[in-house]
């Protein structure tokens, strides 16, 4: 049930995209109205949530100290894990937000006869979480070629780096494969590990399936069903200049629309806490000693 419901929800979204693309006015709805709505909701929801959090005070300085505190001058302080200066706090936060440092500490415990407890290193979750988030970031930034004109240099550089193996035409991007592998890992981990499956909710499967759907439709659009990139850019760039145009008959209909429906679902989905992490006011690791 916990997996089935979100799975059906994602299929339903795809079906809506399929149907709407064929109905008169449906393309405009999905290509123009929904993107604006979804984006506005995303930004509004994000700001609302941060403001909601900010409404509550932070009366106590309760960060978990993960290293030697600033104490006697001859005792070496761990300036990042137990910071006593703003700089240390910022360093701790940056490492946490950009490198998932706490997750890197992960271990796996097993109980053996005795009883004897054994702890092993377990960095797969960290590795795939990093791969997932950074390939996601690269993919989003690469898509800026469709939203900006002229195209900034960093986007072209990213595309070049990402496709440097020069496999096939249009060229193959490594991040696409890494991204799919990482989502698959994160999904399978939830399904296969009994304790993780036990704690997972539909709300955990939904984004994974949705993102998976977006990635797959995107890849199909690029390599199999062949979208007309110029027509797509005409629409997407049109969205950013508030003059969107859907070139009649030029947009490879179904899968472009699919991608739209899916991506909107993703945007409409409540602002995911991952984004909130980027707030400099991250939860526990913030206060100066």
């Amino acid at each position: 049930m916990r997996i089935l419901t979100p799975f059906i929800a994602v299929l339903a979204l795809i079906a809506v995209g399929l149907v709407a693309a064929q109905v008169p006015g449906g393309q405009a709805l999905i290509g123009i109205v929904l993107p604006y709505l979804a984006f506005a909701l995303f930004l509004g929801g994000f700001a609302y949530r941060v403001m909601q959090w900010a409404k509550s005070p932070v009366p106590f300085r309760i960060p978990t100290t993960c290293g030697q505190a600033n104490s006697l001058p001859w005792i070496k302080q761990n300036k990042i894990d137990c910071p006593s200066t703003k700089l240390g706090v910022i360093a701790r936060m940056i490492l946490e937000v950009f490198l998932f440092r706490s997750l890197f500490r992960n271990t796996k415990a097993e109980v053996h006869e005795g009883p004897k407890l054994v702890y092993g290193s377990s960095k797969f979750l960290w590795l795939f979480a990093i791969l997932f988030h950074y390939s996601f970031l690269v993919i989003v930034l690469r898509h800026m070629r469709l939203f900006m004109d002229p195209i900034p240099g960093f986007v072209a550089a990213l595309e070049f780096g990402d496709g440097f193996m020069q496999i096939g035409a249009p060229v193959f991007y490594q991040t696409n494969a890494i991204f799919l592998a990482a989502i698959a890992f994160l999904f399978l981990r939830r399904v296969m590990l009994s304790n993780i499956r036990y704690i997972s909710l539909p709300a955990d499967y939904f984004p994974l399936l949705l993102i998976f759907g977006i990635a797959v439709t995107g890849i199909l659009m690029r390599y199999v069903f062949r979208a007309d990139v110029v027509a797509i850019k005409q629409l997407t760039h049109g969205l950013t200049t508030f003059a969107p145009t859907i070139a009649a008959g030029q947009i490879s209909p179904i899968f472009f629309i699919l991608q739209q429906a899916d991506a909107h679902g993703r945007c409409l989905h409540e602002p995911h806490p991952e984004h909130d992490q980027q707030q400099p006011d991250g939860p526990a690791h913030q206060s100066v000693e």
């Binding site: 930004l43 994000f46 700001a47 941060v50 403001m51 900010a54 409404k55 509550s56 005070p57 932070v58 800026m144 939203f147 900006m148 004109d149 002229p150 900034p152 950013t240 200049t241 508030f242 980027q278 707030q279 400099p280 006011d281």
Partner: peptide, 26 residues
Amino acid sequence: MYGKGRIIPALILFLGLMTSPIWYKS
């Protein structure tokens, strides 16, 4: 609202970044 001094500018920065394609060479 608490911590306005940091949260509001950060939020504006975030919104600015997210909407940058709109401002970019507009």
